[in-house]
Simulated assay, not measured.
Amino acid sequence: MRIALIVGINYYQNGGALFGCVDDAHAVKAVLERHDGGGVNFDCKLLTGTGPTDAVTRRELRDSIQQLFAVDADIALFYFAGHGHIEATGGYLLASDSARGDEGISLSDVLVLANQSRARNKIIFLDSCHSGIAGTPPGQGNLATLAEGVTVLTASTAEQYATERDDRGVFTTLLVDALNGSAANLTGDITPGSIYAHIDQSLGAWEQRPVFKTNVKQFVSLREVSAPISREELRRLVEFFPAPGAEFRLDPTFEPELKGRDPGMPDPIPENTRTFGTLQKYNRLNLLVPVGVRHMWNAAMESRSCRLTALGEHYRRLVEKNRI
């Protein structure tokens, strides 16, 4: 079972309105509900605060967070977009009816609920100002208190504001892009770690900095997208490269194109050309490079070899260990 509580609040009775949080929440819900192929993924509950008749009260927000982390699920995911507040007593998520900062939901309380949850994996995404303090008790400096299975990814540090651009949260825009496939690995899996890497690389040193805190033994896949190469073809890495540093020798029989052949060159062999097609896929995915020449065509026509890159060696080891 995978469940998600997704909250977006634009309307605040006692503070400045926001503009992109509700749309961001809808976008997160849309991408989490199903895998790329249409299979069911997360069972989502959506709370949005758009105006006086559609507000998210503190009571409703707290009760929903408690219900989320009370479920014995494989993954319990909490996403929040809205105002955040920080003071000496810690950080807070503000509901529509919060009259002042410390009347929101304490981030310490959210972490207590997550730490005590029976869910195997607890994922928290926060697109709110000062959210980077989540997981750090007041007065504890950089000491984070996360139980095993808890992961927190926030839009900014404890000192920073979370910005909006074109009426969308900068953090959530990158989060949704990552979940749509920008953070997928070669098997099509998207993990919290790969999402953070995507967001981290997309934001410059002078922009808001995402904060990533986790206490897990192994990352869980949050969404599956179409892989750029089949698992069957990946498993052939150990067939072509049986040992680290091995090279695969090519010759003109691997190249299916007849143009450019010198007189006396052997004709293509169908079995070899099929193998060459797989090797070319490896090359396009940066798993493999030709040795001594720039292009795979030259490697074949000049009877050169090809070898795995560092990334290719990584996936070869995964295949060797039956991880793929």
Rank of each mutant, 00 (worst) to 15 (best):
S226Q: 12
A227N: 06
Y161D: 10
S182E: 13
T191L: 08
G139S: 12
S221I: 07
E164N: 05
L175H: 09
A162F: 05
Q208M: 03
L146P: 05
T214W: 09
W206G: 02
V211Y: 02
L203V: 10
V152T: 12
E224N: 11
T157A: 04
A158W: 10
H130L: 03
A119W: 06
A178D: 09
T187G: 06
G193F: 01
V176K: 12
R165F: 11
I190W: 06
A155V: 07
L186C: 07
S156F: 00
Q201C: 10
Q201T: 13
Y196N: 10
S182F: 08
A227S: 13
T191N: 09
Q218G: 02
V216W: 00
K213E: 04
V170N: 01
A205R: 15
K217S: 11
L174W: 01
R209L: 04
Q218P: 00
E148G: 07
I195W: 07
R165G: 08
N121G: 01
P137G: 13
I124H: 06
L143G: 02
L174D: 01
T173H: 13
G139N: 14
T151A: 14
R209C: 00
S156Q: 00
L153I: 15
R209K: 10
T151N: 08
A205C: 06
E233K: 13
Q208C: 02
P192I: 05
V220P: 00
P138M: 13
P210N: 08
S226N: 11
T191P: 03
L203M: 08
A119Y: 04
D127M: 08
S202H: 10
N185R: 05
T151S: 15
G193S: 14
L203D: 05
S128Y: 00
L153P: 05
A205Q: 15
E159I: 09
S230R: 00
T191M: 03
F219M: 05
R223A: 11
N180A: 11
E207C: 07
V220W: 01
T151M: 11
T172D: 04
K122Q: 15
Q160A: 08
D200F: 14
G135V: 09
P192S: 07
K217R: 12
G188N: 12
C129A: 07
V152A: 10
C129G: 00
S128H: 02
L186V: 11
T145N: 11
